[in-house]
Design a protein around this nucleic acid. Sequence first.
DNA 1: CGCCCAATTGAACTGCATCAAGATTCGTGG
DNA 2: CCACGAATCTTGATGCAGTTCAATTGGGCG
Lengths: 216, 216
Amino acid sequence: MVDAPGTPIALHRLPEVLTAEPARLRALSHLRRFRREQDIYVQEERTDTWYRVVSGAACKYLMRTDGRRQLVDIYLPGDLFGFTARLLHRFAVQAVAEGTLIACYPRHRVEALAEEDAETALEIRIQIVEALERLQEQLLVTTTMTAQEKVREFLFYFHRRLSTGTGNGLALPISRYDIADILGISAETVCRAFTDLQERGVISLLGPRRIRINRR
Amino acid sequence: MVDAPGTPIALHRLPEVLTAEPARLRALSHLRRFRREQDIYVQEERTDTWYRVVSGAACKYLMRTDGRRQLVDIYLPGDLFGFTARLLHRFAVQAVAEGTLIACYPRHRVEALAEEDAETALEIRIQIVEALERLQEQLLVTTTMTAQEKVREFLFYFHRRLSTGTGNGLALPISRYDIADILGISAETVCRAFTDLQERGVISLLGPRRIRINRR
DNA sequence: CGCCCAATTGAACTGCATCAAGATTCGTGG
DNA sequence: CCACGAATCTTGATGCAGTTCAATTGGGCG
């Protein structure tokens, strides 16, 4: 246990993603850094905090009775998560990338702010709706596409969300197994899809965790 | 075209589902009745209205390039839908039951009300979050379960949402094809699951659209 | 009563999971 | 800096759940 859960981080050097949110909302947050597979919150935990990914990636998941982990959503920099209508969390969220940085907001203070500040209320509503639409897109992907189409769609999505414009390809923050769990297919099938897509010239594998997208 | 799209309905005899919402929100609504497969709103339509199912059922769907209809969510009495962060709708919503009754809310007036009335803002946030959680459950169902488990889970969900306590079984408002599209399986597989579940004694088929749930 | 759509059943095919065995990469400590 | 071990990633072979195509039955409504 090198890192205690959610080590607090100094607030200087604010990453760019945080500067986009309203200052009054940002003032309520504090930052924590998480290791890979470290839980940000767990099932049955009280829903008294909201979170936003600053850097890295996190995923919402459920432990199945057979011991396997089922992913329901994946959060990338800028995404707000942790809100619910319940008292206790139905799903857990853990970091999938090493050193994932998370901004934490005390729920009651955010809701109090939303009650008096319409801009904050709108920002929250937009974030929740965006989570909803991400989920709809994912549902569309997992129910209608073949395994290869799922992987292709997933890579395009990551490219849209993460491309830095540096041109040395796209760095995937997550493993094949994570990708498989998100798409509802096996890790082996993900591998085969990667190689097939490369043979078709759609992508180039620069390394296991680094790819280039050639064409859509 | 017997019925023009969204025939207005008199406001007397308000169904029970509407009495639960805040009076100030209800005051903004007007009712419309829809026929089976009639669109409530379509893709690319402006997102200037929100809706709530009063009776019957509706589904959110997308027309695929191969002409097939892909369902993303299903709305039952009490569910609020139509909100988005976009200017235009990405998905369409149509009635799946004959004579589905929908309450319509002008978006700008609801948002203006939400801005000054914290209770309304909270009600909206809760509804959106509930849509989100429905979708997460559905994602879990479609990605992890076998076809027969999906159908069983679907029937139990409908039972929870629609059971009237009359005891003559559960009336399904939608066709096998609709069920298949929601669960991401073929209609034939849905049929086979129905008969298998009956043979196992889990359900009884009283008619094509009427079942009884015997045990879980 | 007869038509039409919905529901059901059957048979052959296929994409993906699963099991198994290597190949690479990465982190860790010497 | 290098070497070792443990993940992670890749590739192959087999089996099966579910799709697809096709035909038949059944119900509801004019």
